[in-house]
Design a protein around this nucleic acid. Sequence first.
RNA 1: GCGCCCGUAGCUCAACUGGAUAGAGCAUCAGCCUUCUAAGCUGAGGGUUAGAGGUUCGAGUCCUCUCGGGCGCGCCA
Length: 579
Amino acid sequence: MNKKITKIITASILSLDTQDQSWAENLNIEVTQTKDLSHGDFSCNVAMRLSKILKLPPLDIAKKIINAIETTDGIEKIEVAPPGFINIFLTKSEKTQILKKILSKDDGFATEVQGSKGSILLEFVSSNPTGPLHVGHGRHAAFGDSLAKLLRKAGHKVETEYYINDAGRQIDILLVSILIKALNKIETKSDLPRACYQGEYLNPIADEMIKQSRDLLTPLLTKNFLKQDVSEDEEIDLAILSVKNTIGDEMFESLSSDICNITINTIKEDLKRFGVTFDHWYSERSMINSGLISNSINDLTKKNLLYKQEGALWLKTTNYNDDKDRVVLRDDGRSTYFASDIAYHADKKRRGYDQLINILGSDHHGYIGRLKAGLASLGFSPEDLEVVLVQFISLYRGKKKIQMSTRSGEFTPMSELYNEVGVDAARFFYVSKSQSQHLDFDLELAKQTNNENPVYYIQYAHARICRVLSQMTSQKISFEKEIAEKNLDKLTTKHEVELIAKLSGYPALIKQSANNKTVHTLANYLHELAQLFHSYYGAETFLIADKELRNARVLLIKAVQIILKNGLSIIGVSAPSKM
RNA sequence: GCGCCCGUAGCUCAACUGGAUAGAGCAUCAGCCUUCUAAGCUGAGGGUUAGAGGUUCGAGUCCUCUCGGGCGCGCCA
């Protein structure tokens, strides 16, 4: 309908008698659904935008436009409202068409054909496998999973991916931390080097280590890893070196691979319980082993984009809008994190996706420029990578701000939250606020007031509809679709009109949310829809004697049920049939 | 010091990317269960959109400055 109106308004404008129509060619006519039904069903602001060009008052232009509009099916009337809005009122039967469509398409309503909008690789969470996910990661998990579902509905072919940082120094540190913890359990009681991971979650892994490889630990018992007289970094590097020398590089590699598998599996399990699954788990270690990094460095060398300085190898990212050049190989020959990322993102593109979307924490915003520069230097278009930033969660316990750090072991695990308040409430809470806003989150409050989470309000609306429908069955009333469809004009109360208008807005909302990469807009929509339904429920009885009106009303609430269920599924929240 | 993000009701957040009277939920106050589930409904109070200029038919939204907060500026990951 939106397109139809745009078309007739365009036609009308073009038919206007003006000397110069060159402006009309790139005129972007916006027809939007109104917030306030007294302004009609759709409105258009084109007259006000034309007023400067045509040097006429907007109201006059609007009048001219509507006078030139040809009468069309489905439109009841068109009005002009100050300062120059063109308001379009649809006929009753036109408005209720949407209900039939929702019922016939069911879950497929407002769904574009998959792949019609191109393919996307969506990467999110990708938290280092050095510990369990905390509540901050929860926001990424909930948002990313919902965004993937939303984009699929909007017609994209979407695959999700988790990049595992299972190589490099942090994993070395993790392994050393676990080994020392294990040694402490056997006999030596010493502190951990300052840079070590301290968390309690390492204890079970240390126990396992003792069980599996006790012999290996024996020669380490005599070592002293604490060196207070050097810096934190040097201390841990010496400890890593000492362990490697004692047990051998090969064994060290093998053990770190083992512990990565353990931590990754806990992360996988955790996400699964949270309702989040990934299509791909991409290991940095295996990427390095398959030579992708050296390949991409070779490619860059051929393109003459690398140079040596102070023993390190630099990439001229400044050629591609970065603010300074970046190191890819350190003076000791090891590749940097950045080198991995260039190779990784080039590999993503080579796997054939049209678009790459990364969901990153807002602290990574400085990284976007060099990532795009990296892609560009390998000949890919930097526009193919889009980064969606998710702002931080500030966690409070009452008034007190909680600092979170995986390394120090001071963090609230994501699982603690969803175990306490439930997956549905946690997921809804996360996605109900814009990801581009900082979020203050009082943990105590969230746990206490879980019954007041708006998710229950929405789920309750769904459950109430299910209840009405099951009451019908038990009262031996059947739903007669033909009668319902013939009598949709009888839905005339304020609540009914508003509900129908709200339902009509669903496809546009899906489209807009997908374009803007926002999920909270959908969460808000569902809340508003539920609100309209609850009001309606309180105001009218559905199972009435009047057969015609009853069937029409039942059709309406069935449509509401379909949309609620569909929207909730995108957010990853269940739609219970009773509560 | 340079760069990015943000500031909306007592609290947590919206506002269809520049549209019509800035909206919800908590919290507060007053009503509604004999009738499809009260995890609900109906109503009330609460705002100089941090502040000051500017752009235009029209600004919470765009531009400049001030104040206040978050984050980033490694041969860390």
